[in-house]
């Protein structure tokens, strides 16, 4: 029993550490890719190839002057970034990072909590994510911040609907809401039975919605600098701003992990059962495979950011309500028909 608890604690600590490190280096990758796409070098001064740039950025944010506006609501002003960070880190609890490893005959699954409503948990935490933006934006007592916060809220609510509908179609095939079961179902056909093949439209909708939920370009209207100065974090300085920026990268990492798990086989990789390796090695390779998928998705997020221009607000709403929702409902109907046909 104790080995399980110790293992869980190690797992939680390492997942937390890994998501922070990934988020940290995503900031560097973002700037490097931006440099590449715009035909310039990107940061290259701190350390070899600019590898220490995230540390320098973090140190800069930590040591900057802490400013709390006089007219702001102090408690909520501080609660905003904390909530953003909290909700960003919560989702990782239900993501299966690997199969299981065996220590002294104990089977230790590489997942913090295998609850049987895993997808709903992810969805719930995602829908809470908007509070960080809203509370921070309102507490700043600044018109631009408030506008950013309201944009964030309406955007999140609009895109949550189509996201939920695309998940419903997926759940109709899987017959389970547990993230681990869904991943295991994708291990057939030499670990290549990925749900993206059965749910291409659903995946597309989910992908677009996760861009909107993480406030990434082309949906980054809450922090649209051409109209709203800095959006909801206009008044934030120092590490509080750092938390908001950091939460965005953690969100990106987590939603990449969710997409990889639900649609791209999670820790399954081609020919995973045919290698003849021991369980522990296969599990570790699986974790590696999941991380490769996640990094590819993060790259995709950045690729889109430096390629596609930002939407106008009415275009964003039209896409969400008039295109994605009907498409998602159509997807549900088609999936239902196919499921009935093959029963």
């Amino acid at each position: 029993m104790t080995i399980d608890i110790i293992f869980k604690l190690i797992l939680i600590a390492s997942i937390f550490g890994l998501s922070l490190v990934t988020a940290m280096y995503s900031t560097l990758a973002e700037r490097k890719f931006a440099g590449f796409f715009q035909d310039r070098l990107g940061p290259d001064r701190a350390g070899p190839y600019g590898l220490f740039q995230p540390l320098a950025d973090g140190l800069k944010l930590l040591t900057k002057e802490e400013i709390i506006p006089e007219s702001a609501n102090t408690f909520l002003f501080l609660a905003g970034p904390s909530l953003a960070m909290l909700t960003a880190c919560m989702t990782s609890a239900v993501i299966p990072w690997g199969t299981y490893i065996e220590v002294d005959g104990h089977k230790l699954p590489l997942q913090v909590a295998d609850i049987n409503v895993g997808i709903l948990f992810v969805f719930g935490v995602v829908s809470l994510g908007v509070y960080g933006v809203m509370i921070g934006g309102w507490a700043s007592n600044n018109k631009f911040s408030l506008l950013g916060a309201i944009r964030g809220a309406s955007q999140n609510i609009s895109y949550e609907i189509s996201m939920g509908l695309s998940i419903i179609a997926l759940v109709m095939i899987t017959g389970s809401l547990s993230m681990r079961e869904i991943t295991d179902q994708q291990s057939g056909f030499h670990g290549m039975n990925w749900y993206v093949i059965k749910q291409p439209l659903g995946f597309l909708i989910f992908l677009i919605c996760s861009f909107a939920e993480t406030n990434r370009t082309p949906f980054d209207l809450p922090e649209c600098e051409t109209e709203l100065v800095g959006g909801y974090h206009t008044e934030y300085s120092s590490m509080k701003l750092g938390f908001y920026l950091f939460a965005e990268y953690i969100n990106m990492f987590i939603s990449s992990a969710v997409m990889a798990t639900l649609y791209f086989g999670g820790y399954n990789f081609p020919f995973m059962h045919d290698l003849g390796l021991s369980q522990n090695v296969v599990a570790m390779l699986g974790v590696g495979a999941l991380f490769i998928k996640i990094l590819l998705f993060i790259f995709f997020f950045m690729w889109v950011r430096w390629t596609v221009p930002r939407f106008r607000y009415d275009q964003l709403m039209r896409l969400g309500w008039q295109v994605l929702i009907p498409l998602a409902i159509l997807n549900i109907i088609i999936t239902g028909g196919v499921v009935l046909f093959f029963q």
């Binding site: 709903l120 948990f121 969805f123 719930g124 829908s127 809470l128 609510i157």
Partner: peptide, 19 residues
């Protein structure tokens, strides 16, 4: 029920109220 309470009340209705 917990998950749905989480999503519907906390994630959607309260956001609309706040909004």
């Amino acid at each position: 029920l917990a998950a749905v309470n989480f999503i519907v009340y906390m994630g959607a209705i309260m956001v609309l109220f706040l909004f």
